[in-house]
Design a protein around this nucleic acid. Structure first.
Length: 505
RNA sequence: GAGGGGUUAGCUCAGCGGUAGAGCAACGCACUUUUAAUGCGUGGGUCGUGGGUUCAAAUCCCACACUCCUCACCA
């Protein structure tokens, strides 16, 4: 576009002029910074010089020019270091003719380094009185930085597509979006430090696999040229991690990207970060306790409190989570008697009676989970564990010895959404083989998400795995609920987007 | 995959058959404590892409692309 081209050309001309007068911004390699903008503002009393001592109390700062006001032979600008911004005051007399011209050649978006002393303007704003300035980069594009006063903002970057496709613009222009993304990273770091602090070993297992197992999902397919081998991208971390347990590493975890070839939604991105941990010699209840500890630790270390406010809800992670029995919860919310959920036939009839389509259901477990999803999940706002999952949908969880047809499995819910899935891992290789065989039969019957047979994993179990508790938490969903994000894309730096055929501005 | 909304200047948006608009940003001049700086002046658009209807299309119709929302799909 010609107008945009001309804006860019104007900036290129300014760059050329900067170089002519000895201020080539791209030739500069460094500009040490004594304090962040936030520090300068917070520690102003301590850092500002006394009257007459300005020259011996110089500080260095650098940041992006986010606004500027030039008034004849003096000028103001705000420099942002991303976290906060501070005003700088430049006078022609103080910096000299060449630097003054250089300053006048700056645009919003450029990076500038300054040396000067702290002072307060007539209107009361803590600022830097500049004695020396160094342009550090020239932005050739105009940046969508809005104007701002007293927390009110004008003309900021709002277009969702631009925010996701050009995330750097979002990061530098939208403080709320930036905070969410940074907090997501802090959540992941806090999770890692929790498990390291608890004596877990962090590992990395293969992304490229012959068979993608450990979850019910369609995988992505790829090809390894050197071995002429079709491979799949992992859909979970589970089976490799349990093989490490079989190697007598009793506490192990991984935080890694997994890939599921499924739809997009406000809670689904095809690649997402999954945390899984496995702990030998502990039961389901101990794993639940770990989930509680982990959430409390993360909330406290990232947000400073175990009580997190998100939207208009206060989530309390300081207390043990509520525990509800799956069938009882369904019964309570749907009016279906627990007795009706004992056989596929009666459960189907009940499902139809409450107005749901039962025609696609092939087994009791699927019906029960569907009923849970419809009737119970939306009500689980405060942290809640739903205990007792059906055998058919839990091919890797130990059978509940006291309850035929059910397993020692539990899922945690917060804000009406599943946040974690944990169970006592099957360590009986004969049982595990039977479960896989049942899954293979379902796959043969047309369920392309049924779990494939994994002989390598079975061999490891045959070599002996101790009783083990394991759990998986979607890190993106965890970040969403802690940051109050409504869309998973708000906690992903670069969410999945179709190729854009429009010219890049 | 289905339905609905959107795509106009760098950004945020208005215009919805009759010569493409505003604010901010940009450019010029003035201004050595301003802060959504101010005053005066100036430039900037294949109106998402491709067809069609019409004397005339940003505007109406069709197709396509991207996008958002809802639904479907989604241990």
């Amino acid at each position: 576009m010609s107008s945009e081209k001309s804006l860019r050309e104007i900036r290129l001309e300014k760059l050329a002029r900067l170089r002519e007068i000895g201020f080539d911004p791209f030739a500069v390699e460094e500009h040490p910074i004594d304090h962040s903008a936030r520090e300068l503002l917070d520690r102003y009393e301590e850092l500002a010089p006394a009257e007459g001592e300005e020259k011996s109390n110089q500080i260095r700062f650098a940041g992006r020019v986010v606004s500027h006001r030039i008034m004849g032979k003096a000028a103001f600008a705000h420099l942002s270091d991303g976290d906060a911004k501070i005003q700088v005051y430049v006078r022609k007399n103080d910096v000299g003719d060449a630097a003054w011209e250089a300053f006048n050649l700056l645009d919003v978006g450029d990076h500038l380094g300054v040396t000067g002393h702290l002072f307060t303007t007539k209107t009361g704003e803590k600022s830097i009185h500049v004695s020396r300035l160094v342009p550090l980069s020239k932005a050739l594009q105009t940046l969508p930085l809005g104007k701002e006063k007293d927390g009110e903002r004008w003309y900021a970057l709002d277009d969702v597509e631009t925010r996701y496709r050009h995330r750097h613009l979002d990061l530098l222009a939208n403080p709320e979006a930036r905070a969410m993304l940074l907090n997501r990273s802090r959540v992941v770091s806090a999770v890692r430090s929790y498990f390291l602090g608890e004596g877990f070993l962090e590992v990395e297992t293969p992304v490229l696999q012959n068979e993608a197992g450990g979850a019910a999902a369609r995988p992505f397919h790829s090809h390894f040229n050197a071995l002429n081998l079709d491979v799949k991208l992992r859909i979970s971390l589970e089976l490799y991690l349990k093989r490490i347990i079989c190697g007598d590493v009793p506490k192990v975890f991984e935080i890694g990207r997994v890939f599921r070839n499924e739809g997009l939604s406000n809670r689904h991105n095809p690649e997402f970060s999954l945390l899984e941990w496995y702990e030998a010699y502990v039961n389901l209840e101990a794993t639940q306790k770990r989930v509680e500890d982990c959430f409390r630790f993360v909330a406290e270390s990232v947000f400073g409190s175990a009580v997190v406010r998100t939207g208009d809800v206060e989530l309390d992670f300081s207390k043990p989570w509520a525990r509800v029995d799956m069938l009882e919860a369904i019964s309570e919310r749907s009016g279906i008697a627990v007795e009706e959920l004992k056989s596929a036939e009666s459960a189907k009839a009940a499902m139809t009676r409450v107005g749901l389509d039962a025609s696609k259901e092939t087994h009791l477990g699927g019906i029960i989970e569907k009923l849970l999803e419809v009737f119970v999940e939306p009500h689980l706002i405060q942290p809640t564990f739903v205990v007792g999952y059906p055998l058919e949908t839990s091919p890797l969880a130990k059978k509940d010895p006291n309850r035929p047809g059910f397993t020692r499995r539990c899922e945690g819910y917060v804000l009406g959404r599943e946040v974690c899935n944990m169970f006592s891992e099957i360590n009986d290789p004969i049982d595990q083989r039977e479960r896989f065989e049942a899954q293979v039969a379902e796959r043969a019957a047309g369920d392309d998400e049924a779990h494939p047979m994994d002989e390598e994993f079975l061999y490891a179990l045959e070599c002996g795995m101790p009783p083990t508790g394991g759990c998986g938490i979607g890190m993106d969903r965890m970040a969403m609920l802690l940051t109050g994000a409504e869309h998973v894309r708000e906690v992903l730096l670069f969410p999945m987007m179709k190729p854009d055929h429009k010219p890049v501005s």
